[in-house]
Design a protein around this nucleic acid. Structure first.
Lengths: 265, 265
DNA sequence: CGAGTTGTTCCGCTCAGCGAGACATAAAAC
DNA sequence: GTTTTATGTCTCGCTGAGCGGAACAACTCG
Protein backbone atom coordinates (compact mmCIF):
# COMPACT_ATOMS: atom_id res chain seq x y z
CA UNK A 1 0.00 0.00 0.00
CA UNK A 2 2.57 2.53 -0.88
CA UNK A 3 1.43 5.46 -2.88
CA UNK A 4 1.71 9.13 -3.33
CA UNK A 5 3.19 10.93 -0.41
CA UNK A 6 2.35 14.47 0.48
CA UNK A 7 5.71 15.55 1.65
CA UNK A 8 6.16 18.35 3.89
CA UNK A 9 8.04 21.61 4.09
CA UNK A 10 11.00 20.65 6.16
CA UNK A 11 14.43 19.19 5.60
CA UNK A 12 14.77 15.48 5.06
CA UNK A 13 16.74 13.41 7.55
CA UNK A 14 19.95 12.08 6.08
CA UNK A 15 21.78 9.05 7.32
CA UNK A 16 24.59 10.45 9.38
CA UNK A 17 24.75 14.20 9.22
CA UNK A 18 24.39 15.08 12.86
CA UNK A 19 26.56 17.75 14.33
CA UNK A 20 27.08 16.24 17.73
CA UNK A 21 29.79 13.65 18.09
CA UNK A 22 27.52 11.47 20.16
CA UNK A 23 24.74 11.46 17.61
CA UNK A 24 27.18 10.86 14.82
CA UNK A 25 28.48 7.83 16.65
CA UNK A 26 24.98 6.62 17.35
CA UNK A 27 24.16 7.00 13.70
CA UNK A 28 27.06 4.74 12.86
CA UNK A 29 25.60 2.13 15.18
CA UNK A 30 22.24 2.44 13.51
CA UNK A 31 23.68 2.02 10.05
CA UNK A 32 25.71 -0.96 11.15
CA UNK A 33 22.75 -2.60 12.86
CA UNK A 34 20.55 -2.06 9.87
CA UNK A 35 22.99 -3.68 7.48
CA UNK A 36 22.26 -6.95 9.19
CA UNK A 37 25.57 -8.65 8.61
CA UNK A 38 29.20 -8.28 9.60
CA UNK A 39 30.48 -5.07 8.09
CA UNK A 40 34.01 -3.93 7.36
CA UNK A 41 35.41 -0.51 7.89
CA UNK A 42 35.45 0.36 4.22
CA UNK A 43 31.87 -0.77 3.72
CA UNK A 44 30.85 1.53 6.51
CA UNK A 45 32.82 4.34 4.94
CA UNK A 46 30.63 4.02 1.87
CA UNK A 47 27.44 3.74 3.88
CA UNK A 48 28.09 6.65 6.20
CA UNK A 49 30.41 8.87 4.15
CA UNK A 50 32.45 9.58 7.21
CA UNK A 51 36.24 9.94 7.06
CA UNK A 52 38.19 6.80 7.68
CA UNK A 53 40.05 7.72 10.85
CA UNK A 54 36.92 9.06 12.50
CA UNK A 55 35.02 5.91 11.75
CA UNK A 56 37.86 3.79 12.96
CA UNK A 57 38.04 5.67 16.21
CA UNK A 58 34.30 5.39 16.73
CA UNK A 59 34.23 1.67 16.04
CA UNK A 60 37.22 1.04 18.26
CA UNK A 61 35.47 2.90 21.03
CA UNK A 62 32.35 0.80 20.73
CA UNK A 63 34.36 -2.37 20.49
CA UNK A 64 36.27 -1.48 23.62
CA UNK A 65 32.96 -0.91 25.36
CA UNK A 66 31.57 -4.28 24.32
CA UNK A 67 28.88 -2.78 22.16
CA UNK A 68 30.47 -4.13 19.02
CA UNK A 69 32.78 -7.05 18.43
CA UNK A 70 34.91 -8.32 15.62
CA UNK A 71 34.48 -11.36 13.48
CA UNK A 72 37.14 -14.03 14.00
CA UNK A 73 38.90 -12.81 10.86
CA UNK A 74 39.56 -9.61 12.75
CA UNK A 75 38.06 -7.30 10.18
CA UNK A 76 34.31 -7.17 10.09
CA UNK A 77 32.34 -5.68 12.96
CA UNK A 78 29.25 -7.31 14.45
CA UNK A 79 26.92 -6.44 17.27
CA UNK A 80 28.31 -7.15 20.71
CA UNK A 81 26.55 -8.71 23.65
CA UNK A 82 26.05 -5.43 25.37
CA UNK A 83 24.17 -4.11 22.39
CA UNK A 84 22.01 -7.24 22.20
CA UNK A 85 21.10 -6.82 25.80
CA UNK A 86 20.26 -3.20 25.12
CA UNK A 87 17.96 -4.26 22.31
CA UNK A 88 16.09 -6.68 24.55
CA UNK A 89 15.74 -4.08 27.25
CA UNK A 90 14.27 -1.66 24.75
CA UNK A 91 11.65 -4.18 23.69
CA UNK A 92 10.66 -4.85 27.28
CA UNK A 93 10.19 -1.19 27.97
CA UNK A 94 7.38 -0.31 25.61
CA UNK A 95 4.38 -0.77 27.87
CA UNK A 96 3.56 2.91 28.19
CA UNK A 97 3.85 3.61 24.50
CA UNK A 98 1.94 0.44 23.61
CA UNK A 99 -1.16 1.45 25.47
CA UNK A 100 -1.47 4.83 23.82
CA UNK A 101 -0.70 3.35 20.46
CA UNK A 102 -3.46 0.78 20.86
CA UNK A 103 -5.95 3.51 21.63
CA UNK A 104 -4.82 5.46 18.59
CA UNK A 105 -5.01 2.38 16.43
CA UNK A 106 -8.57 1.73 17.43
CA UNK A 107 -9.68 5.22 16.55
CA UNK A 108 -7.97 4.96 13.20
CA UNK A 109 -9.63 1.61 12.55
CA UNK A 110 -13.05 2.99 13.37
CA UNK A 111 -12.96 6.28 11.51
CA UNK A 112 -10.63 5.20 8.75
CA UNK A 113 -8.39 8.25 8.82
CA UNK A 114 -4.92 8.94 10.18
CA UNK A 115 -4.57 10.14 13.75
CA UNK A 116 -1.77 11.47 15.85
CA UNK A 117 -0.91 12.47 19.38
CA UNK A 118 1.15 15.58 19.95
CA UNK A 119 2.55 17.67 22.79
CA UNK A 120 4.03 21.12 22.99
CA UNK A 121 7.55 21.55 24.15
CA UNK A 122 9.19 24.91 24.45
CA UNK A 123 6.92 26.42 21.88
CA UNK A 124 7.25 23.61 19.37
CA UNK A 125 4.73 20.98 18.47
CA UNK A 126 6.09 17.44 18.71
CA UNK A 127 4.37 14.25 17.61
CA UNK A 128 4.52 11.46 20.15
CA UNK A 129 2.89 8.92 17.92
CA UNK A 130 1.00 8.64 14.72
CA UNK A 131 -1.03 5.93 13.02
CA UNK A 132 -1.60 6.08 9.30
CA UNK A 133 -4.92 4.99 7.88
CA UNK A 134 -4.58 2.57 5.03
CA UNK A 135 -4.94 5.00 2.15
CA UNK A 136 -2.61 5.41 -0.78
CA UNK A 137 -2.34 9.15 -0.28
CA UNK A 138 -0.13 9.70 2.72
CA UNK A 139 1.29 12.46 4.76
CA UNK A 140 4.90 12.34 5.82
CA UNK A 141 5.34 13.74 9.30
CA UNK A 142 8.32 13.88 11.62
CA UNK A 143 7.43 11.71 14.60
CA UNK A 144 9.63 12.23 17.59
CA UNK A 145 12.53 14.41 16.62
CA UNK A 146 11.82 17.44 14.52
CA UNK A 147 9.12 19.87 15.39
CA UNK A 148 6.32 21.85 13.78
CA UNK A 149 5.35 25.45 14.11
CA UNK A 150 2.21 25.46 16.23
CA UNK A 151 0.38 28.38 14.66
CA UNK A 152 -0.66 26.51 11.55
CA UNK A 153 -1.89 23.11 12.62
CA UNK A 154 -4.90 22.16 14.65
CA UNK A 155 -2.98 20.49 17.48
CA UNK A 156 -0.62 23.40 17.83
CA UNK A 157 -3.35 25.99 18.00
CA UNK A 158 -5.28 23.83 20.42
CA UNK A 159 -2.37 23.52 22.80
CA UNK A 160 -1.61 27.22 22.52
CA UNK A 161 -5.19 28.00 23.36
CA UNK A 162 -5.09 25.92 26.50
CA UNK A 163 -2.06 27.63 27.95
CA UNK A 164 -2.61 30.23 30.59
CA UNK A 165 -3.34 33.64 29.10
CA UNK A 166 -0.03 35.06 30.27
CA UNK A 167 2.09 32.36 28.73
CA UNK A 168 0.00 32.26 25.60
CA UNK A 169 0.68 35.94 25.02
CA UNK A 170 4.34 35.48 25.74
CA UNK A 171 4.66 32.68 23.21
CA UNK A 172 2.54 34.45 20.64
CA UNK A 173 4.55 37.62 20.75
CA UNK A 174 7.79 35.75 20.20
CA UNK A 175 6.37 33.59 17.49
CA UNK A 176 7.06 34.34 13.86
CA UNK A 177 3.85 33.53 12.05
CA UNK A 178 5.45 32.02 9.02
CA UNK A 179 3.22 31.57 5.99
CA UNK A 180 2.92 28.09 4.51
CA UNK A 181 -0.24 28.33 2.44
CA UNK A 182 -2.56 31.18 1.56
CA UNK A 183 -4.76 30.12 4.46
CA UNK A 184 -2.09 30.19 7.11
CA UNK A 185 -2.94 32.61 9.88
CA UNK A 186 -0.17 35.19 9.93
CA UNK A 187 -1.81 37.92 11.95
CA UNK A 188 -1.53 38.11 15.73
CA UNK A 189 -5.05 39.45 16.22
CA UNK A 190 -6.64 36.86 13.99
CA UNK A 191 -4.75 34.11 15.76
CA UNK A 192 -5.77 35.45 19.15
CA UNK A 193 -9.45 35.31 18.32
CA UNK A 194 -8.98 31.93 16.70
CA UNK A 195 -7.55 30.66 19.97
CA UNK A 196 -10.47 32.09 21.93
CA UNK A 197 -12.85 30.38 19.58
CA UNK A 198 -11.01 27.12 20.06
CA UNK A 199 -11.50 27.34 23.81
CA UNK A 200 -15.21 27.85 23.31
CA UNK A 201 -15.61 25.05 20.79
CA UNK A 202 -13.44 22.60 22.66
CA UNK A 203 -11.67 21.59 19.48
CA UNK A 204 -9.41 23.11 16.85
CA UNK A 205 -9.29 22.82 13.08
CA UNK A 206 -6.69 23.31 10.43
CA UNK A 207 -8.23 23.96 7.06
CA UNK A 208 -5.28 23.64 4.69
CA UNK A 209 -3.32 26.15 6.73
CA UNK A 210 -0.14 24.17 6.68
CA UNK A 211 -0.30 21.97 3.62
CA UNK A 212 -2.67 22.52 0.72
CA UNK A 213 -5.08 19.64 0.52
CA UNK A 214 -4.76 18.54 4.14
CA UNK A 215 -7.31 19.22 6.83
CA UNK A 216 -7.09 18.42 10.49
CA UNK A 217 -9.21 18.45 13.65
CA UNK A 218 -7.77 18.23 17.17
CA UNK A 219 -9.24 17.72 20.64
CA UNK A 220 -7.52 18.23 24.00
CA UNK A 221 -6.05 15.50 26.20
CA UNK A 222 -5.88 16.33 29.89
CA UNK A 223 -3.75 14.82 32.61
CA UNK A 224 -5.11 13.62 35.95
CA UNK A 225 -5.39 17.17 37.25
CA UNK A 226 -7.38 18.34 34.30
CA UNK A 227 -4.48 20.22 32.77
CA UNK A 228 -4.41 19.98 28.97
CA UNK A 229 -1.05 18.47 28.07
CA UNK A 230 -1.54 16.86 24.68
CA UNK A 231 -3.65 16.97 21.56
CA UNK A 232 -5.29 14.14 19.70
CA UNK A 233 -5.93 14.87 16.06
CA UNK A 234 -7.35 13.34 12.92
CA UNK A 235 -5.80 14.36 9.68
CA UNK A 236 -6.46 13.63 6.05
CA UNK A 237 -6.53 14.78 2.47
CA UNK A 238 -9.45 17.14 1.91
CA UNK A 239 -10.33 15.28 -1.26
CA UNK A 240 -11.40 12.42 0.94
CA UNK A 241 -11.83 14.15 4.27
CA UNK A 242 -13.37 17.60 3.89
CA UNK A 243 -13.29 19.60 7.07
CA UNK A 244 -16.98 19.12 7.70
CA UNK A 245 -16.62 15.38 7.74
CA UNK A 246 -13.57 15.59 9.98
CA UNK A 247 -15.54 17.60 12.52
CA UNK A 248 -18.05 14.82 12.75
CA UNK A 249 -15.34 12.71 14.32
CA UNK A 250 -14.95 15.03 17.29
CA UNK A 251 -17.10 12.98 19.66
CA UNK A 252 -15.17 9.83 18.88
CA UNK A 253 -11.89 11.70 19.32
CA UNK A 254 -13.04 13.01 22.69
CA UNK A 255 -13.76 9.49 23.80
CA UNK A 256 -10.27 8.37 22.86
CA UNK A 257 -8.76 11.47 24.45
CA UNK A 258 -10.41 10.49 27.71
CA UNK A 259 -8.88 7.04 27.49
CA UNK A 260 -5.46 8.50 26.84
CA UNK A 261 -5.96 10.80 29.81
CA UNK A 262 -6.45 7.80 32.03
CA UNK A 263 -3.01 6.54 31.07
CA UNK A 264 -1.36 9.71 32.37
CA UNK A 265 -0.17 9.91 35.97
CA UNK B 1 46.11 9.59 29.13
CA UNK B 2 47.44 12.57 31.09
CA UNK B 3 45.75 14.80 33.63
CA UNK B 4 42.84 13.85 35.86
CA UNK B 5 45.15 12.72 38.65
CA UNK B 6 42.39 12.43 41.19
CA UNK B 7 40.70 9.35 39.79
CA UNK B 8 38.87 6.66 41.67
CA UNK B 9 41.46 4.20 42.97
CA UNK B 10 39.70 1.07 41.77
CA UNK B 11 36.18 2.29 41.82
CA UNK B 12 33.43 -0.29 41.73
CA UNK B 13 31.61 -1.13 38.48
CA UNK B 14 29.38 1.87 38.64
CA UNK B 15 26.81 2.35 36.00
CA UNK B 16 28.13 5.29 34.06
CA UNK B 17 31.82 6.01 34.51
CA UNK B 18 33.10 5.96 30.97
CA UNK B 19 35.62 8.52 29.89
CA UNK B 20 34.34 9.17 26.40
CA UNK B 21 31.45 11.53 26.03
CA UNK B 22 29.76 9.20 23.58
CA UNK B 23 29.94 6.22 25.88
CA UNK B 24 28.78 8.29 28.79
CA UNK B 25 25.77 9.35 26.79
CA UNK B 26 25.11 5.81 25.69
CA UNK B 27 25.32 4.70 29.30
CA UNK B 28 22.60 7.18 30.13
CA UNK B 29 20.41 5.59 27.49
CA UNK B 30 21.08 2.16 28.92
CA UNK B 31 20.19 3.21 32.42
CA UNK B 32 17.04 4.91 31.24
CA UNK B 33 15.96 1.91 29.20
CA UNK B 34 16.64 -0.48 32.04
CA UNK B 35 14.48 1.46 34.44
CA UNK B 36 11.52 0.35 32.40
CA UNK B 37 9.31 3.37 32.92
CA UNK B 38 9.29 7.09 32.23
CA UNK B 39 12.09 8.70 34.22
CA UNK B 40 12.64 12.26 35.36
CA UNK B 41 15.89 14.18 35.30
CA UNK B 42 16.45 13.93 39.02
CA UNK B 43 15.78 10.21 39.09
CA UNK B 44 18.42 9.81 36.44
CA UNK B 45 20.81 11.96 38.46
CA UNK B 46 20.55 9.45 41.27
CA UNK B 47 20.88 6.48 38.98
CA UNK B 48 23.85 7.75 37.03
CA UNK B 49 25.57 10.09 39.49
CA UNK B 50 26.22 12.50 36.67
CA UNK B 51 26.07 16.26 37.20
CA UNK B 52 22.73 17.83 36.49
CA UNK B 53 23.64 20.13 33.58
CA UNK B 54 25.50 17.40 31.77
CA UNK B 55 22.60 15.03 32.06
CA UNK B 56 20.22 17.69 30.94
CA UNK B 57 22.28 18.42 27.89
CA UNK B 58 22.57 14.76 26.99
CA UNK B 59 18.86 14.14 27.33
CA UNK B 60 17.98 17.23 25.33
CA UNK B 61 20.29 16.04 22.60
CA UNK B 62 18.63 12.65 22.42
CA UNK B 63 15.22 14.19 22.56
CA UNK B 64 16.02 16.48 19.68
CA UNK B 65 17.22 13.47 17.73
CA UNK B 66 14.00 11.56 18.33
CA UNK B 67 15.71 8.87 20.35
CA UNK B 68 13.92 9.93 23.50
CA UNK B 69 10.67 11.73 23.98
CA UNK B 70 8.85 13.35 26.84
CA UNK B 71 5.77 12.14 28.52
CA UNK B 72 2.89 14.55 28.07
CA UNK B 73 3.54 15.92 31.55
CA UNK B 74 6.64 17.50 30.05
CA UNK B 75 8.99 16.08 32.65
CA UNK B 76 9.62 12.38 32.36
CA UNK B 77 11.66 10.95 29.51
CA UNK B 78 10.65 7.80 27.62
CA UNK B 79 11.92 5.92 24.62
CA UNK B 80 11.34 7.65 21.34
CA UNK B 81 10.27 5.92 18.18
CA UNK B 82 13.75 5.98 16.79
CA UNK B 83 15.13 4.12 19.78
CA UNK B 84 12.31 1.58 19.70
CA UNK B 85 13.03 0.87 16.10
CA UNK B 86 16.71 0.57 16.91
CA UNK B 87 15.92 -2.06 19.53
CA UNK B 88 13.99 -4.13 17.04
CA UNK B 89 16.74 -3.88 14.47
CA UNK B 90 19.25 -5.06 17.03
CA UNK B 91 17.25 -8.16 17.83
CA UNK B 92 16.84 -8.93 14.18
CA UNK B 93 20.52 -8.69 13.42
CA UNK B 94 22.64 -9.47 16.44
CA UNK B 95 24.96 -12.43 16.61
CA UNK B 96 22.32 -14.48 18.41
CA UNK B 97 19.89 -13.83 15.57
CA UNK B 98 21.97 -16.11 13.40
CA UNK B 99 21.76 -18.85 16.02
CA UNK B 100 18.04 -18.43 16.26
CA UNK B 101 17.75 -18.69 12.53
CA UNK B 102 19.60 -21.98 12.58
CA UNK B 103 17.30 -23.32 15.26
CA UNK B 104 14.29 -22.21 13.26
CA UNK B 105 15.65 -23.86 10.14
CA UNK B 106 16.10 -27.14 11.90
CA UNK B 107 12.54 -27.12 13.18
CA UNK B 108 11.19 -26.30 9.75
CA UNK B 109 13.28 -29.06 8.21
CA UNK B 110 12.01 -31.59 10.74
CA UNK B 111 8.33 -30.80 10.74
CA UNK B 112 8.11 -29.62 7.16
CA UNK B 113 6.06 -26.51 7.84
CA UNK B 114 6.82 -22.80 7.99
CA UNK B 115 7.82 -21.33 11.33
CA UNK B 116 8.34 -17.84 12.66
CA UNK B 117 9.57 -15.97 15.67
CA UNK B 118 7.67 -12.86 16.75
CA UNK B 119 7.67 -10.20 19.45
CA UNK B 120 5.29 -7.50 20.59
CA UNK B 121 6.35 -4.01 19.78
CA UNK B 122 4.24 -1.08 20.92
CA UNK B 123 1.13 -3.20 20.84
CA UNK B 124 1.77 -4.74 17.46
CA UNK B 125 3.03 -8.17 16.58
CA UNK B 126 6.26 -8.09 14.61
CA UNK B 127 8.23 -10.95 13.08
CA UNK B 128 11.84 -11.16 14.03
CA UNK B 129 12.43 -14.01 11.68
CA UNK B 130 10.57 -16.45 9.52
CA UNK B 131 11.50 -19.58 7.62
CA UNK B 132 9.30 -20.89 4.84
CA UNK B 133 8.82 -24.60 4.37
CA UNK B 134 9.38 -25.82 0.86
CA UNK B 135 5.79 -26.04 -0.31
CA UNK B 136 4.33 -24.55 -3.44
CA UNK B 137 1.49 -22.96 -1.48
CA UNK B 138 3.03 -20.07 0.40
CA UNK B 139 1.89 -17.38 2.67
CA UNK B 140 3.09 -13.89 1.94
CA UNK B 141 3.69 -12.26 5.29
CA UNK B 142 5.23 -8.98 6.25
CA UNK B 143 8.65 -10.04 7.47
CA UNK B 144 10.42 -7.01 8.72
CA UNK B 145 8.59 -3.79 8.24
CA UNK B 146 4.88 -4.16 8.73
CA UNK B 147 3.04 -5.53 11.70
CA UNK B 148 0.03 -7.66 12.58
CA UNK B 149 -2.82 -7.06 15.01
CA UNK B 150 -2.26 -9.36 17.95
CA UNK B 151 -5.82 -10.48 18.59
CA UNK B 152 -6.10 -12.67 15.55
CA UNK B 153 -2.95 -14.70 15.35
CA UNK B 154 -1.61 -17.36 17.65
CA UNK B 155 1.61 -15.52 18.50
CA UNK B 156 -0.20 -12.30 19.27
CA UNK B 157 -2.70 -13.93 21.57
CA UNK B 158 0.04 -15.86 23.26
CA UNK B 159 2.11 -12.77 23.99
CA UNK B 160 -0.96 -10.91 25.21
CA UNK B 161 -1.77 -13.78 27.53
CA UNK B 162 1.65 -13.68 29.10
CA UNK B 163 1.52 -10.03 30.06
CA UNK B 164 0.76 -9.21 33.66
CA UNK B 165 -2.94 -9.44 34.45
CA UNK B 166 -3.29 -5.74 35.12
CA UNK B 167 -1.60 -4.68 31.94
CA UNK B 168 -3.40 -7.30 29.90
CA UNK B 169 -6.75 -5.98 31.01
CA UNK B 170 -5.75 -2.42 30.29
CA UNK B 171 -4.57 -3.23 26.80
CA UNK B 172 -7.45 -5.53 26.01
CA UNK B 173 -10.14 -3.09 26.96
CA UNK B 174 -8.71 -0.52 24.59
CA UNK B 175 -7.93 -2.75 21.69
CA UNK B 176 -9.77 -2.64 18.39
CA UNK B 177 -10.81 -6.19 17.63
CA UNK B 178 -10.97 -5.88 13.89
CA UNK B 179 -12.62 -8.69 12.00
CA UNK B 180 -10.59 -10.40 9.30
CA UNK B 181 -12.46 -13.68 8.84
CA UNK B 182 -15.68 -15.07 10.29
CA UNK B 183 -13.62 -16.82 12.93
CA UNK B 184 -11.77 -13.76 14.16
CA UNK B 185 -12.45 -13.16 17.84
CA UNK B 186 -14.08 -9.76 18.06
CA UNK B 187 -15.57 -9.99 21.53
CA UNK B 188 -13.69 -8.86 24.64
CA UNK B 189 -15.11 -11.59 26.87
CA UNK B 190 -14.38 -14.34 24.41
CA UNK B 191 -10.86 -13.09 23.95
CA UNK B 192 -10.35 -12.91 27.71
CA UNK B 193 -11.27 -16.51 28.24
CA UNK B 194 -9.26 -17.50 25.21
CA UNK B 195 -6.21 -15.89 26.81
CA UNK B 196 -6.85 -17.70 30.08
CA UNK B 197 -7.07 -20.96 28.22
CA UNK B 198 -3.80 -20.18 26.47
CA UNK B 199 -2.07 -19.74 29.82
CA UNK B 200 -3.40 -23.10 30.98
CA UNK B 201 -2.50 -24.95 27.81
CA UNK B 202 0.87 -23.31 27.43
CA UNK B 203 0.29 -22.74 23.75
CA UNK B 204 -2.00 -20.71 21.50
CA UNK B 205 -3.77 -21.53 18.26
CA UNK B 206 -5.15 -19.55 15.39
CA UNK B 207 -7.80 -21.47 13.52
CA UNK B 208 -8.29 -19.40 10.36
CA UNK B 209 -8.88 -16.31 12.44
CA UNK B 210 -6.70 -14.07 10.34
CA UNK B 211 -6.63 -15.66 6.92
CA UNK B 212 -9.07 -18.27 5.68
CA UNK B 213 -7.26 -21.49 5.09
CA UNK B 214 -4.34 -20.78 7.39
CA UNK B 215 -3.86 -22.29 10.83
CA UNK B 216 -1.19 -21.55 13.36
CA UNK B 217 0.13 -22.79 16.71
CA UNK B 218 2.45 -20.78 18.95
CA UNK B 219 4.49 -21.52 22.08
CA UNK B 220 6.17 -19.02 24.43
CA UNK B 221 9.85 -18.10 24.37
CA UNK B 222 11.26 -16.68 27.60
CA UNK B 223 14.34 -14.54 28.04
CA UNK B 224 17.05 -15.23 30.60
CA UNK B 225 14.88 -13.84 33.37
CA UNK B 226 12.06 -16.20 32.51
CA UNK B 227 9.93 -13.41 31.17
CA UNK B 228 8.04 -14.33 28.00
CA UNK B 229 9.18 -11.92 25.31
CA UNK B 230 8.72 -13.81 22.07
CA UNK B 231 6.56 -16.44 20.43
CA UNK B 232 7.60 -19.32 18.26
CA UNK B 233 4.91 -20.44 15.85
CA UNK B 234 4.26 -22.94 13.11
CA UNK B 235 1.94 -21.91 10.37
CA UNK B 236 0.46 -23.54 7.31
CA UNK B 237 -2.42 -24.02 4.93
CA UNK B 238 -5.14 -26.04 6.61
CA UNK B 239 -5.46 -28.17 3.49
CA UNK B 240 -2.11 -29.61 4.36
CA UNK B 241 -1.83 -28.72 8.03
CA UNK B 242 -5.14 -29.04 9.84
CA UNK B 243 -5.06 -27.61 13.31
CA UNK B 244 -4.98 -31.04 14.94
CA UNK B 245 -1.81 -31.92 13.16
CA UNK B 246 -0.25 -28.58 13.98
CA UNK B 247 -0.87 -29.14 17.66
CA UNK B 248 1.09 -32.36 17.50
CA UNK B 249 4.15 -30.23 16.83
CA UNK B 250 3.89 -28.45 20.17
CA UNK B 251 6.48 -30.61 21.96
CA UNK B 252 9.00 -30.04 19.19
CA UNK B 253 8.27 -26.32 19.22
CA UNK B 254 8.79 -26.20 22.97
CA UNK B 255 12.15 -27.82 22.57
CA UNK B 256 13.19 -25.21 20.03
CA UNK B 257 11.74 -22.43 22.17
CA UNK B 258 14.00 -23.52 25.02
CA UNK B 259 16.99 -23.38 22.73
CA UNK B 260 16.01 -19.93 21.53
CA UNK B 261 15.58 -18.80 25.12
CA UNK B 262 19.22 -19.43 25.79
CA UNK B 263 20.12 -16.92 23.08
CA UNK B 264 18.14 -14.12 24.71
CA UNK B 265 20.02 -12.13 27.30
C1' DC C 1 58.35 -7.14 -6.67
C1' DG C 2 55.43 -3.01 -7.32
C1' DA C 3 50.52 -1.41 -7.56
C1' DG C 4 46.28 -1.39 -5.33
C1' DT C 5 43.25 -1.96 -1.44
C1' DT C 6 42.15 -1.73 3.27
C1' DG C 7 43.17 -1.23 8.29
C1' DT C 8 45.85 1.48 11.87
C1' DT C 9 48.36 5.21 14.01
C1' DC C 10 50.16 10.15 14.38
C1' DC C 11 49.44 14.64 15.77
C1' DG C 12 48.26 19.55 16.00
C1' DC C 13 44.00 22.40 15.82
C1' DT C 14 39.65 23.52 17.27
C1' DC C 15 35.28 23.43 19.04
C1' DA C 16 31.92 20.35 21.53
C1' DG C 17 31.28 18.81 25.83
C1' DC C 18 31.80 20.10 30.47
C1' DG C 19 29.79 21.39 34.97
C1' DA C 20 29.80 25.02 38.85
C1' DG C 21 26.67 28.19 39.53
C1' DA C 22 22.86 31.27 38.57
C1' DC C 23 18.18 31.44 37.32
C1' DA C 24 13.29 29.82 36.65
C1' DT C 25 9.44 27.35 38.04
C1' DA C 26 6.46 24.50 40.51
C1' DA C 27 4.99 22.23 44.56
C1' DA C 28 5.00 21.95 49.68
C1' DA C 29 5.36 23.79 54.15
C1' DC C 30 4.55 27.45 57.15
C1' DG D 1 -0.10 35.10 51.48
C1' DT D 2 5.35 34.07 52.31
C1' DT D 3 9.04 31.00 52.74
C1' DT D 4 11.21 26.68 51.88
C1' DT D 5 12.29 22.83 49.08
C1' DA D 6 12.61 20.21 45.01
C1' DT D 7 13.31 20.22 40.41
C1' DG D 8 14.17 21.70 35.67
C1' DT D 9 16.65 25.10 32.52
C1' DC D 10 20.12 28.36 31.03
C1' DT D 11 24.91 30.85 31.05
C1' DC D 12 29.54 30.86 30.08
C1' DG D 13 34.55 30.38 30.18
C1' DC D 14 37.77 26.48 30.21
C1' DT D 15 39.82 22.56 28.28
C1' DG D 16 40.57 18.11 26.54
C1' DA D 17 37.99 14.96 23.43
C1' DG D 18 36.99 14.51 18.90
C1' DC D 19 38.55 15.54 14.44
C1' DG D 20 40.53 14.15 9.97
C1' DG D 21 44.61 14.95 6.58
C1' DA D 22 48.41 12.51 6.05
C1' DA D 23 51.61 9.04 6.78
C1' DC D 24 52.26 4.30 7.82
C1' DA D 25 51.43 -0.74 8.04
C1' DA D 26 49.56 -4.96 6.43
C1' DC D 27 47.65 -7.70 3.36
C1' DT D 28 46.14 -8.86 -1.16
C1' DC D 29 46.77 -9.51 -6.17
C1' DG D 30 48.85 -9.54 -10.80
Amino acid sequence: MTGQVISFPREAPDVVNETSSTLKAFGVLEVLVRMGRPVTLSELMLATELPKPSLHRTLALFEEAGLLSREPDGRAYTLGQRLSRFGLDILRNDAAAAERRIILRRVVAEIGESCNLAVMHRGDLIYLDRIEADWPLRLQLPVGGASLRPHCCASGKLLLAHRGVAERDRLLSKMALERFTDRTITDQQVLQSELDRILQNGYAVDNEEYVIGVACVAVPVADSRGEVVAALAVQGATARLPLMRAIEFVPRLREAAAQISSTLG
